[in-house]
Design a binder for these strands. Sequence first.
DNA 1: CTCATATTGTGATTTTAACTCACAGCCCGT
DNA 2: ACGGGCTGTGAGTTAAAATCACAATATGAG
Lengths: 294, 294
Amino acid sequence: MSTYPPLNALRIFEAAARLESFSAAANELHVTHGAVSKQIKQLEEWLDVPLFERASGRVKLTETGWRYLVQIQDGLDLIANATSQLLQPDRQRRLSINSTPTLAMFWLLPRLAGFREQYPDIDLHLVTSDRDISRLEAPFDIAIRRGPGDWPGHIAKPFMKEWELPLCSPALLAANPIHSAADLARHTLLYADTRPTAWQRWFTLAGVPDLKPASSLHFDRFSLALQAAIDGVGVVLGPLPMARQAIDSGKLLAPLAAPVVPVRDYCWIAPRAALDDGAIHAFCQWLEQQAAVV
Amino acid sequence: MSTYPPLNALRIFEAAARLESFSAAANELHVTHGAVSKQIKQLEEWLDVPLFERASGRVKLTETGWRYLVQIQDGLDLIANATSQLLQPDRQRRLSINSTPTLAMFWLLPRLAGFREQYPDIDLHLVTSDRDISRLEAPFDIAIRRGPGDWPGHIAKPFMKEWELPLCSPALLAANPIHSAADLARHTLLYADTRPTAWQRWFTLAGVPDLKPASSLHFDRFSLALQAAIDGVGVVLGPLPMARQAIDSGKLLAPLAAPVVPVRDYCWIAPRAALDDGAIHAFCQWLEQQAAVV
DNA sequence: CTCATATTGTGATTTTAACTCACAGCCCGT
DNA sequence: ACGGGCTGTGAGTTAAAATCACAATATGAG
């Protein structure tokens, strides 16, 4: 719940500030200069700060007024843009895809050009989130999450497996070789808040449950941790096949082949009622085909 | 100059949509339900689309209404935040850095190894968000946002400028050359929800205000749009110097040198009380040094 | 089945905000 | 000095917002 200033006055303030002239604003807004003068005065009284300095029949924004302008201008632009988009809707079909960030960044994005070529009439809106789909606020046409899951009212299908291995950049490996799990103690390990126990699980399976790294970096999402590994910052417990492209292109190496920690399969999830939709059907098929290629 | 919907009606629409109830909105706004009903109806007639479905004395947002809500809500939030900041001025040896995703992914991450070498005793927790810092749930030691901003209780300093140019991958440019702004009509343009008006602003400055792309892809965050451009999906309006590394390494090209759209400077923001903290001071100094190198 | 409650819809009326009009004051250029 | 351009403001007019009272519909309890 928010408190708004008098919005009509705000609209008029934006024009007057942009044009640095009450009479110009009056012309633009098709009102009298007196109306502009009064609205500005009303807004200043409501906010209890001067927004303009007045001198010799001229106005100049105060520092406060200028800062306020920059911020509310963005807000007003968003409103204007949303409104004009609604008044002139696109003709193309637009699918809203809600994917986990890691899959989006490292697996889905590199393949999207292919989808574009195959389906030039389908626009995509890609949103990334780790939230359970029942807690998403925005509607989606297709969501991608790890399964198995309880998604009532939806159809879901696994289309890709995932597993984890330590990954680091070739430069880092050359500077500080890794031949065994114990060698990781000399490295910076990269952690993601979304997978807090991943490294500990790997240590346990690798037989070094008490291993302490030289240092650590923490990220709020995994895609940042993986990118940090590519940038040579440290060692990440990397998901495959997501990181396959980075490995194939030489950006990342897997110095230790074992243990391979399996993680749950990725599923596409679509509202049951929407499965007659050709575009949704096409995207799901395409997902399966892309994963089968791996 | 923008055309706005009836702003008072918009304010009431936001509350009714959020609460999914006209009478609840009436309570919140301290007006009668009849006023809410009429304002919604006025807005629907102004826009010429139904924003709500009415059934059995209940309302439910239409898909169109939902889309509109999400967009104008951000606009209204910006206005509310700007206003509340104007009305009233606002703590580990692990530094929590809260950065915008684009800066984090494309500028900060590639440099973090350098910070690690220089300050091996400082762990970092990198969180990315586009939210205004007053709306962050997690505390931070240093935030990075575009200024100028009103960050009460904080010290802020601009450390890097940003500007925008169209960017695309070499492969895409070879397949479909871009010699002028008008050539963009044959391309897929990449949009980010966080910068909804960026392309339109660029079109206006480039003298093609009515340009319509062949197709478009939308992402909820800019880092995905930029990565999509690197992956050859389409043309992005890319921020410099963030994309400098991608350009220098040949992953992205800037086919059009003008117009260069300036964007607000990046500032580091730290709580005033924390500036005696050597680690925070060190990170801020380091940021400035890194930006000066550009 | 009836009744009470909750919800949105709407015409007539009232209240409030927005705007106009006309005059005022100030500055600058000719 | 005069004209033009600009912002300020009180009184009055107009338009928008809101209230009020009644209406319609659905749901749940008795």
